[in-house]
């Protein structure tokens, strides 16, 4: 079976230890996490985990129902690739002196990234994108010398009025 990147949203209790339960399950069952992001929702008692996993449809089914057995998990939804919006925030710190600074700023502008910190020897770029854009920007910046970077992991929602409330995978 062919593997593709899947985007899965999971609604969980906003409690200590919940993330450990979910990630422990992924790790012990050998599901490979590509990206993971967690934050509270409009209901402060509930957090939303967005996880990206490279897997086939059998493993995806396993993930849904294994995760669903966790007491702290309420809903799981697999987001359709063509019917979702997704974003990731990335901060990249690049070496930049007087000679290279202009070139780096030009690149950042093309990617609609922002410069959020600037010193005589370095600058920090903020980029919001769907993941692939981040990789492309990184490739362009590498020759200048990337000092460090941080990514939030991808968060995603369905397009239109559809939401995780419409998911068939309810585990209450």
């Amino acid at each position: 079976m062919t593997k593709t990147m899947k985007t899965i949203s999971i609604l969980v209790d906003n409690e200590a230890g919940v993330l450990a339960r979910v990630t422990n399950l992924f790790s012990r069952r050998g599901y490979n996490i590509d990206s993971l992001a967690v934050g509270t929702t409009d209901d402060p008692a509930i957090s939303r985990i967005t996880v990206r996993v490279d897997c086939d449809s059998r493993v995806l089914e396993q993930i849904i129902f294994q995760v669903g057995k966790l007491v702290c998990v309420h809903k799981v939804k697999v987001l359709d690739d063509s019917m979702r919006v997704s974003r990731e925030l990335t901060l990249i710190k690049v070496k930049a002196d007087e000679a290279s600074r202009g070139g780096i700023i030009d690149i950042a502008q093309v990617f609609r990234a922002r410069i959020i910190d600037l010193t005589p020897d370095a600058l920090t770029i903020e980029l919001t994108g769907d993941g692939e854009k981040t990789d492309a920007l990184l490739d362009m910046l590498r020759p200048y010398g990337v000092i460090e970077m941080a990514r939030t992991g991808i968060v995603a929602l369905d397009r239109g009025s559809e939401s995780i409330a419409d998911s068939p995978y309810v585990f209450d």
Binding site: E61, F65, K69
Partner: peptide, 11 residues
Amino acid sequence: ADRAEINKIVK
């Protein structure tokens, strides 16, 4: 009784 057991080892 456990939906996760369906298709786990064999389809």
